[in-house]
């Protein structure tokens, strides 16, 4: 039971890479400043705000990376990244934007952890006021809470 020392080190290196990934991805693609305000251990991998996205990593690293936040933040980020005014964004744009963010967070983390052969799955994403998505996992998840302008972004990792 529990995690062996080597695995724990590996998981912490994933967490560290993921934090840098969020800052780097949003800083470069959306020219937005991102600040980590809190991190906590949570029991499940739950995406429980109005928008969410995730990718699975498999191979030498096995786990999930996801994000969830209110629609307002997704609109702002997608608008900034794609250069379209918020009122011209369609649901499809928002969904694709969330998916791409999950993909970028996952891809960046994979590259920078450098644990050998790792595949990142195609991303999955949702938007909608009443959705709560949960992936059952036998491992706890780490939840990182970032402040992005006046919004909050939750990033999850379960490894």
């Amino acid at each position: 039971m529990g995690m062996g020392g080597r695995v724990a080190v590996q998981v912490e290196s994933v967490h560290e890479a993921l934090q840098v990934a969020v800052v780097d991805v949003l800083g470069r693609m959306a020219m937005t400043e991102v600040v980590l305000i809190h991190r906590e251990r949570v029991s499940g991998f739950r995406l429980d705000f109005e928008a969410g996205g995730m990718v699975r990593l498999s191979g030498a690293l096995n786990g999930m990376i996801g994000l969830t936040c209110h629609l307002g933040l997704v609109e702002e980020l997608v608008s900034r990244i794609g250069g379209l005014p918020i009122d011209q964004l369609e649901n499809e744009d928002l969904m694709d934007g969330v998916a791409e963010l999950a993909n970028l967070f996952g891809g960046w983390t994979k590259t920078n952890v450098g644990q050998g052969d790792v595949q990142v799955s195609p991303p999955m994403a949702f938007i909608g006021k009443e959705v709560i998505a949960e992936w059952k996992t036998d491992r706890p998840a780490e939840r990182f809470i970032f402040q992005v302008n006046e919004h909050v972004l939750y990033v999850l990792a379960s490894f």
Binding site: V78, G82, G83, D93, D96, A99
Partner: peptide
């Protein structure tokens, strides 16, 4: 495949 990236 990402329209966001195509748009950028």
């Amino acid at each position: 495949d990402s329209r966001t990236i195509r748009r950028v």
